[in-house]
Nucleic acid binder design. Structure first.
Lengths: 272, 272
DNA sequence: TAGTGGTCTAGACCACCAC
DNA sequence: TGGTGGTCTAGACCACTAA
């Protein structure tokens, strides 16, 4: 009946703690009870961050079973309600999935919104019912230039990749990407011929923050040639910068030809 | 000392309830305790939806003070913790603001993300440090055509407005908008010469869900004339559909000239 | 059927902040 | 300084579901 199939074990003990049992004297302290300034965090928030960090860092990859509420509560020396508050938030954020009786598991990366879904261009093309393939045009490993470092948000060695995505023999998208070797050292040797850089990254760094910049541009000579469109034709240019826990992961420029491509997104102020 | 400056009063009693006191016998029932099928909601979720509905509907406009946790708890016949759970979620979603001692207040509409901020083009232009003005090109009240009803998501009478936004005498954006008179009857007589339709709507319907579609298009002859650009020049076309509590409010097409305009957005899977 | 998460309570102490 | 929200507890019952 062993739970915690994968890691867990020393799930989430208090930062310095041994067995983690908090003395009753500390109970019911309210705020932070002493330490002023930096370390002001409620316990449920601390627990939330601990758990989230393990998920985001990849220490607990998708599918990992988390410890049970009771066990985490024990390891923090707090009540189950406090743990529940943290885990409920993680579930609401979509990081974990909770099933009665079964337990709590790290979820697979989900599209936070429609716009995020186009991370994987292959799936995007497949959704259109068209055959998909891609080709690597160039691949270099080098130190990021000043401009590149600015776009990426970090001075580091990078893998610079250019590739084209096709939908039924027609160029669908031109991709110009930088991957930080500081954050993802495995990218140096990854086989991007087999798996497109975007799809590879998604499987490597499942959780991340994303910033988009979207604009309409006229195709210059080079772009026109790459996408087999007329020079000056309108293109949708998407710049996307991805970070995980504040660390830059990748910066990519996607250029979609003509009026064919469309980005959709939805936002809401829902609180449910 | 009276709180509840505005409405509240009969804050949030149970749906059918009189004074709302729940008998002790119902306490600790867990799930839904009986009614199967449709009415399965936890109490804190019910409270959340009740409060949210009052905010979204405009019954409690921005600035309104909500009843205190204790009072709401009393009116629902539940404990303060249960109310706190609902209000904490509303606060996390940005609908309300909570201050110790002061109480809880409905917040002003905030940009859920950067992309939402361009709802008010005037502010967008002002952010660029340029003088802003706009002109109404046409305004009609009519029944939505089939195509329009589809875009809006509802068959209803609408106000159809076309206008241009300027940044320092230069056309900045062409706007083609439909407003549902079913959802916003006041739009029939509103003075859109004084306040642009977008800004007027934001003040009228502060909270809403938004869907975007963004694409690059070549300017047709008409658009080129409106924006004073060359025919065939690339434009960023943004279609935006706004709903509030599921009801269509407005549908707008914004066309921005050339490569000048840029949409930015950010997403994250954060759980904090 | 047993075990897990979902929910709720009736109190409690505390920090913060308006008054 | 008093009142409000923020947090936490030590239970409890229930629903759901995997075993």
């Amino acid at each position: 009946m062993q739970h915690l199939a994968n890691p867990a074990e020393e799930a989430g003990g208090p930062k310095g703690g041994g067995d983690g049992r908090r003395s009753k004297a500390q109970v019911g302290r309210g705020g932070d009870g002493g330490a002023s300034g930096a370390g002001r965090k409620s316990l449920h928030q601390q627990i939330l961050e601990d758990l989230r960090s393990r998920i985001l860092s990849g220490e607990w990859p998708p599918g990992t079973q988390l410890p049970f509420e009771q066990d985490i509560a024990k390891s923090y020396g707090c009540s189950r309600m406090t743990v529940n508050k943290a885990m409920t938030q993680l579930a609401a954020a979509g990081l974990i999935e909770r099933r009665r009786k079964a337990g709590t598991f790290v979820r697979r990366p989900q599209s936070a919104s429609v716009i995020v879904e186009i991370v994987d261009i292959g799936r995007e093309v497949a959704a259109l019912g068209l055959p998909y393939h891609f080709e690597i045009i160039s691949r270099e490993i080098r130190k990021a230039s000043t401009a590149e470092a600015e776009r990426l948000g970090e001075e580091t060695r990078v893998v610079a990749i250019q590739c084209r995505h096709f939908a039924a023999r027609q160029p669908f998208c031109f991709e110009d990407r930088l991957i930080s070797l500081d954050a993802v050292p495995e990218a140096e040797t990854a086989d991007f011929e087999a798996t497109s850089p975007g799809a590879w990254l998604v499987s490597r760094v499942p959780w991340s923050d994303v910033e988009y910049r979207i604009k309409a541009v006229a195709a210059d000579r080079e772009t026109a040639g790459r996408l087999l469109i007329a020079e000056g034709a309108p293109c949708l240019a998407i710049w996307r910068r991805t970070t995980s826990e504040g660390r830059p992961i990748t910066f990519v420029r996607l250029t979609y030809p003509g009026s064919d491509h469309e980005v959709s997104a939805s936002f809401s102020s829902k609180a449910g």
